[in-house]
Computed example of a mutant assay.
Amino acid sequence: MFVRTASERDIEAVRALLVETWHATYDAIYGTEKVTEITDSWHSIASLRRRLTRPNSEFLVADDGKRIGGMAYAEADAGGDTVMLRQLYVLPALQGRGIGGMLLDEIIESFSDAKRMRLEVEEQNVKAIAFYQAHGFAQTDRTANCGADQSGIPALIYEMPLI
């Protein structure tokens, strides 16, 4: 796998990756219907397309030339000090092979002037929490609305200094 900037031609494969990964990770937590509702909204083709051109952001994919095995998306705040890692997902069959670490490293390099990186993670997603802790993140807070205002989805907030 190699990491590169996502393009329009990747959008459908990224959506498929997100749908598969979300169902594998969250069906047992939220139920299939809720996960489908979330992925249809948060991971729609239109939503993903908008991320390709959003200022102060980076949208990456891990590609082996045959398939997209992972993706990451992050955006910096207006001052550029804080980067919010909005998404970092690897196909379930490819997890544990270093793809997530490669994506995270490239996201960090993309925001060389930032002072910290922040993310939200479902507290029952123990694999993701272990991954982030192993990469230097520590829990700093909680939110009742992960991913979107009024989502009603609680999450832990993790942060890592970048300087």
Rank of each mutant, 00 (worst) to 15 (best):
L88M: 09
I163R: 15
D141Q: 09
Y73S: 09
K115R: 15
L156P: 01
R49V: 06
I68R: 08
A78M: 01
R116A: 14
S112D: 15
R9L: 10
E159D: 13
K66M: 07
G100R: 07
N125D: 07
E122R: 02
R49N: 07
G80I: 01
T53S: 13
L17F: 10
S47Q: 09
A93M: 11
I29H: 06
M71I: 07
I99P: 00
A78D: 07
A72E: 10
A76G: 13
L94K: 14
F111Y: 11
Q139W: 03
L104R: 06
E75D: 10
G70H: 14
R15V: 03
A46L: 04
V19W: 05
G100E: 13
E20Q: 14
G79C: 04
W42Q: 08
M1K: 06
V35C: 08
T21R: 04
M1C: 03
T39W: 00
E159F: 09
Q150G: 02
M117H: 06
A6P: 08
L17M: 11
H43T: 02
N125V: 00
F2G: 00
D10L: 02
R86L: 07
G80N: 05
F2K: 06
R50A: 12
V14Y: 12
L91S: 15
D10H: 11
R142F: 13
G100Y: 07
G101V: 07
W22A: 05
N56A: 09
Y132A: 02
H135M: 06
G136E: 07
A144P: 03
A13W: 12
Y89D: 13
E120Q: 14
E12L: 14
A13E: 15
M71A: 12
A76V: 11
A130T: 08
F111V: 09
D64K: 08
L52N: 12
E37A: 14
G80M: 01
I45D: 05
D81S: 04
R50Y: 06
F137V: 02
H43N: 13
G65A: 07
V121I: 06
A74T: 11
A155P: 03
D81Q: 12
A144V: 09
R9K: 15
R50D: 13
E109V: 08
V121L: 01
F59E: 10
M117P: 06
S57N: 09
G152M: 10
L104S: 04
G31A: 08
I38L: 14
I68Y: 07
T25I: 02
A16H: 07
K127P: 01
G31D: 06
I107E: 04
P55N: 10
